[in-house]
Nucleic acid binder design. Structure first.
Length: 130
RNA sequence: UUCGCAGGCUGUUCUAUCGCCUCGAUUUAUCGGGGAGGAAAGUCCGGGCAAUACAGGGCGCCAUGCUUCUUAACGAGAAGGCGGGUGUAAGUUCGCAGUAGUGUAACAGAAAAUAACCGUCCGUCAACUGACGGAUAAGGGUGAAAAGGUAGGGUAAGAGCCUACCGGUAGUUAUGGCAACAUAAUUAGCCGUACGCCUCAUGGAUUGUAAGGCCAAAUAUAUUAUGAGUUCCUCGGAACACAGGGCUGCCCGCCCUGGUUUUGACCAAUGCAAAUUGAUUAAGAGUCAUAAGGGGUAGGCUGCAUGAGACUAUUGGUGACAAUAGUACUAGAUAAAUGAUAGAAUGAAAAACAGAACCCGGCUUACAGGCCUGCGAUUUUU
RNA sequence: GUGGAUGUAGCUCAGUUGGUUAGAGCACUGGUUUGUGGUACCAGGGGUCGUGGGUUCAAGCCCCAUCUUCCACC
């Protein structure tokens, strides 16, 4: 059964884990997205927690960053069930960060496409490490 | 009609599907309610709230600066006054305490404020060229700025030196105005400008909700109790002109900490004494274990949204605004919620600036399109 | 959130109390020296002083607004 909800439990809020991600996490690039991830025990019974980030360096206005983060979140919401299934099968918990690195505002359709591509790539990586 | 000026308002709406934050209900999965702005922005001011500080004195620093009013308060706002710039006009924009004292004004120019370079006049020498001494601010060129302007009298020549008119300054009086101030009369002296320092009045303690308060895993641990172990080291008071820190921007002064100096429980010996030497008792701590336990990290709760509030109406006021009555409760997140897709309406195109982070009052800046009110100029018609 | 700094030639910086024409080093261009290049020497070009207003006779400097870049604290 595929659900499209996106509750608080699935967001990564702990500053400690985020700090850890940047120190020890592995990452790959999939323009216009950059993904940082790490297998990590999480405080909630969910397969993965995720953070979305749009750098202030690229978009000065808070309003533009908000818009892009919302589009990212929306795209993630539609496609995350694939990752969920994969990780529950492997019985793993993963912390994930998705950084937007394009310099211009992309439309929802473009971001959606990129998200699908990214998830494919992630699946391959995941199977490799196991 | 066209072109303008001023002020105000608005800032897409609706439906379906999938979602987000929050509150409530039933109850553990559903249902219902609510969910960004006029600037939420810049952080330029003011206030609330909170914590800390606050024996006192002197000096300094910063802000404001025409008048009256508004306001919780302000460096904000309203109305008015005076002066300058700009526009045909409606308007718009900038400035404003005091002058007792004191400083500066490059270059140019004789001189930048107790002015003599040229010129004019007088005297002496000299002898037709001038030299020296004096008087003189009418004329000349320089400059951003040149010693009130014009006319007449006056004089050796001139000059507010005198007079008339005009301009300006200061005082007095009258009228109008709450006042700034305006108008008129009169008197005085004969009158420069700009920017500072300075003086006067009023205000200013510091830090910000990541403030502050509460609860509290894991790990380490102050302290206390009990037990075990050990004899290496430490202990209290006073003074100081030394060092560091705090009150505070600086000084005085005061306080704290360190350092230095001095003294030191009891017994015995020596000694008149001061003191010196030797030995001793008692108690506690540092180590380990167990228990209690405080502060406190991750994390959570609170602060946190009923307010100097908002909207509507009436009344008062030129206005900022105030008073009275009624209405509803209207974001509260915490790596941070409002989005996506599809369709419809208006439209040429859903399209401007832009996202709450403790809360209010202002200011400033950004802003597509649309609407309303008042006023001015011009043209045409009547 | 709070507080502070910065902007001047292509680059790195001076320019302090407003005053004549905004300087220095490197870089650039031309010339001299050399068989050639470098070095050295001589000369030259290049600036809306971040932007827009204001004060003043006069503004890179003073005042106001705004933009850029950077830093500190928690």
């Amino acid at each position: 059964m595929t659900t499209f909800t996106f509750k608080k439990d699935e967001k990564l809020c702990s500053q400690k884990i985020i700090g850890d991600l940047f120190l020890k996490g592995s990452s790959f690039l999939c323009y216009p997205l950059k993904v940082v991830w790490k297998a990590e025990p999480l405080p909630f019974p969910v397969p993965l927690q995720v953070v979305f980030s749009v750098p202030k360096r690229l978009f000065k206005r808070a309003h533009d960053r908000n818009l892009l983060k919302r589009r990212l979140r929306e795209a993630y919401r539609y496609h995350k069930h694939e990752l969920n299934e994969l990780l529950t099968a492997h019985k793993q918990q993963v912390a994930l960060m998705i950084v937007y690195i394009a310099k211009e505002e992309l439309t929802f359709a473009q971001i959606d496409e990129a998200m699908i591509k990214m998830i494919d790539k992630f699946k391959k990586n995941e199977t490799l490490t196991n």
